[in-house]
């Protein structure tokens, strides 16, 4: 049991734009799970402000609280202390207004629904007409490269395909805020590159705000306007790296060879290693 916790190192980046609208505001957030034998300090004094149109990547070793942080924003977990607002509302109000789409770490598809009807699930709840639902499902399935799989059942698809269905499902109801928990973790390199490109294009064209969890440094640098490096025990923010100043918003895959890209990636790696050094 930690007698004294290391002083939390929290950075709130000053926003680049003069007056960007804050979508997600996290203020001194602490979350402690009461496990059977000892408390788990999942998040400790985390503050982060996310502006509209931001693409934020959370990166950090396993168990550092990335999922927990997203779940608090999504009102799936209640903070022990601290304040969170989403669109100026409490997370609960935002959830009830369907302000965000959540791509979970596992596909979470319903096995009794076909692929298409899994994608249309949120649309059914929102009460859209059937033709509209099918139209949107077709569009989103095409976006993730799953045209022609509408009538299949989830268990007839590979793990990576299932995860892509869950992405299509989150995109289908067109939320302004996308919370994505390692959506591409189970995909092969080429599909991953393809979907990374698709995602930046989508983000650029729709001006959605994204919070994205990944274990891949390259993916984080490629996609993000800002990268939040986290470290475990207790889960906290080590560093917030601004990519927007050095990299253009519109990116192609070969940007990954550029020196700016390498410099940011290096800084992320340094941050991650610092986080790991607490481990022993």
């Amino acid at each position: 049991m930690p007698a004294a916790q290391p002083a939390p190192l929290t950075l709130v980046q000053p926003a680049a734009d003069p007056a960007p609208r804050t979508i997600v505001d996290i203020h001194n957030l602490t979350l402690t799970y009461q496990a059977a034998d000892h408390p788990v300090y999942a998040l400790s004094d985390v503050s982060l402000s996310i502006a509209k149109g931001d693409f934020i990547s959370l990166i950090g070793p396993s168990g550092c609280g990335k999922t927990t942080l997203m779940r608090v924003v999504a009102d799936l977990e209640q903070p022990t202390s601290g304040a969170v607002t989403v669109n100026g509302m409490t997370p609960e109000q935002a959830r009830l207004k369907r302000a965000y789409g959540y791509v979970f770490q596992a596909p979470a598809l319903y096995p009794w629904r076909t692929v298409e009807r899994n994608v249309t699930l949120p649309l059914e709840i929102m009460g859209l007409a059937k033709t509209e639902r099918q139209q949107r499902a077709r569009e989103q399935l095409e976006r993730v490269g799953l045209s022609g799989f509408e009538r299949k059942f989830p268990w007839q698809l590979s793990g990576g395909m299932q995860q892509r269905v869950s992405i299509a499902r989150a995109l289908a109801f067109d939320p302004d805020l996308l919370l994505m928990d390692e959506p591409f973790g189970a995909l092969d390199e080429i599909t991953r590159d393809h979907l990374n490109l698709q995602l930046t294009r989508l983000w650029l064209s729709t001006r959605k705000t994204c919070i994205f969890v990944t274990h891949s440094i390259a993916e984080a640098v490629f996609l993000s306007t800002r990268i939040v490096v986290m470290s475990p025990r207790p889960g906290r923010i080590l560093d917030v790296i601004d990519c927007d100043r050095e990299l253009p918003r519109e990116r192609t895959l070969d940007i990954r060879e550029s020196p700016e890209f390498q410099r940011i990636a290096h800084r992320v790696r340094e941050g991650l290693m610092e986080g790991h050094s607490y481990d022993d």
């Binding site: 779940r71 999504a74 009102d75 799936l76 959830r95 009830l96 207004k97 369907r98 965000y100 789409g101 959540y102 979970f104 596992a106 979470a108 319903y110 699930l121 949120p122 709840i125 929102m126």
Partner: peptide, 13 residues
């Protein structure tokens, strides 16, 4: 499963 329930919750169902 919990994650399936969370999904419903996230839709405000």
């Amino acid at each position: 499963e919990r994650i399936q329930l969370d999904l419903m919750r996230s839709y405000g169902a």
